[in-house]
Design a protein around this nucleic acid. Structure first.
Lengths: 217, 217
DNA sequence: TAGTGAATGTGAACACAATCACAAGGAGAG
DNA sequence: CTCTCCTTGTGATTGTGTTCACATTCACTA
C-alpha cells in the first residue's frame, strides 16, 4: 500500500516532534527549521527531514516547516483524533496520577472507568471517574467493549488480573508491574517498569560521570 | 581499556535479563538456557548469548546458565551494589508512588529526601522520608552532595525547578514532565513522559489490530 | 573411557537505521 | 526578472546491531 516501509524509529520520533512542536506553539513560534526542531528533540537534523518526508513534503525550501500545519499532519498520522476508551485497574498512587492527568484525551485516549478492590475506594470519584468494584471488572469490560486496559496494581497481583482480562477479551495491557513468566501469552502486554527505568538511568548517569573506566569484569 | 565496545542495547537488555532471572529465582528454577531466557524477555536467543559473552563465559555448554550465579554477575556489572542517594522533588501522586515503592534499594538507589511547596505536606512522612520545604531545596541538595534528582512536579513548574537544581550542582535530572525548550542545557535531563508513552502504545496496539492498512497520508 | 546429546560462544552475513552531502527549489531583494 | 540565500528532500554511504549457523565443549551414561 505505502510505497516505502517506514522505520519504527521514525514513528517513535514523530511523537517526540509532536511534543517539541507543542512547546514551540505555546511559545508563539510560527515556523521552524529541521535544524531547530532537531535541537529541541535532541536528534539529527537530517533525521527530522527524512522522517517527515516519508509522509510527504510538509516543509518549504528555504523557509522551514509551519508549526501549526506540521502539527496537524502529525496529529492525523499519529491518529490523535480517534479517541480510544480504556479502563484502569488499580487506583493506587500511579492510578490516581493517571486519572487526574487531564491531557490524555488530546493524545488519543480516555480512561472511562476504574476498578479497585478496596471498599473504601469503590464508589468514590477520582478525576471525574467513579471507581467500580473489581469483582465487576470482567462484565463491565465486556459490556463497554474495551480493548486496552491499564494495570496499576501491586506486582504480585498483576499476573492474576492479567489472565482474567485476557478471558474478558482484552487485546492489550499496559502494565506498571514488571512483565514476568506468569503473564498471559495470548495478548500483548507492555510494561512500564519504573524501577527498571530508574536503574537504567542511574547506570547511565554514573557512566557519564566516570569518563574512562573499563567495562568488563 | 575494554577489548570490545559494548553496544548500548546490550546494556539495556541486561536489565531485562535481571528482571527475568529474578522471576526464575522466585519460581525456584536453578538453571536456564539462553532459549528460555530469551522467551521470557522476548528477545532472540543468540542475542542473549552474545550479550552475556561480552562480559565472559558465564554459561556451561550443554547445560545453560546457573540462575543465581548469573544474577550475581549482572548484579556486579550493573552496579546494583553501589547505592546512590537521590532526592525527590514533588510529592504528588507519582512522587508518593516512588516513595512508597520498597525495592529501589535493591536496584542501586535510595530516595533520602523529598521536597514540596505545599505546607500541608511539609513535615509529613511518606514511605519513611520526611517531606521538606521546597525553599530549602538548594541548600539541602548541596549539603547532601546529591547528583541525581527526580522531578515529579506539574509540567509548568518543571523548567524553573530544573534550572534551580542546575545551579545547586546537580548533574542529572529524571523528570516525569516532558522535556521542553525551557529545560536547562547544561545538565542531563531524562524524561519519562507518561502521556507520550501511552500515545505510543496506543498507536502500536491499534496497528496490531488493523493488519494491513496503508501508512502514509 | 568412549560415545551421545545439548547448549554455549562466536565469526560471518545480513538488515536496518543514522548520517552525510548535495541537487532542487522557494522567497525575497534589488 | 534575475540573482542570491537558505532550507528542504533524498540518493549514497557509513556504521551499528541482529541473526544465523556451526564448531566447541561440557555433563551424563553405560
Amino acid at each position: 500500500m505505502s510505497p516505502k516501509r517506514i522505520p519504527s524509529e521514525t514513528i517513535d520520533r514523530l511523537f517526540l516532534y509532536m511534543r517539541g512542536l507543542t512547546c514551540l506553539l505555546r511559545e508563539g513560534t510560527c515556523t521552524v527549521s529541521s535544524k531547530r526542531l532537531a535541537e529541541i528533540c535532541r536528534v539529527n537534523a537530517a533525521a527530522v527531514r527524512k522522517d517527515l518526508s516519508y509522509f510527504g513534503g510538509f516543509g518549504t525550501r528555504g523557509v522551514g516547516y509551519d508549526v501549526k500545519e506540521l502539527m496537524e499532519h502529525l496529529h492525523r498520522i499519529l491518529k490523535y483524533d480517534d479517541v480510544t476508551d480504556v479502563a484502569l485497574v488499580g487506583v493506587g498512587n500511579i492510578g490516581r496520577a493517571l486519572l487526574t492527568h487531564s491531557d490524555f484525551e488530546l493524545e488519543g485516549f480516555r480512561i472511562i472507568t476504574a476498578f479497585d478492590c478496596d471498599p473504601d475506594k469503590i464508589g468514590t470519584k477520582v478525576g471525574g471517574v467513579t471507581v467500580e468494584d473489581m469483582d465487576h471488572m470482567v462484565d463491565r469490560v465486556r459490556e463497554l467493549g474495551l480493548d486496552l486496559v491499564i494495570l496499576a496494581v501491586p506486582d504480585s497481583a498483576a499476573p492474576k488480573i492479567a489472565h482474567t482480562l485476557e478471558k474478558a477479551g482484552v487485546s492489550s495491557i499496559l502494565s506498571f508491574s514488571p512483565c514476568d513468566l506468569f503473564m498471559p501469552h495470548g495478548i500483548e502486554v507492555t510494561c512500564i517498569d519504573l524501577s527498571m527505568e530508574m536503574a537504567r538511568l542511574l547506570y547511565h548517569s554514573r557512566r557519564g560521570n566516570e569518563p574512562a573506566e573499563e567495562v568488563g569484569v
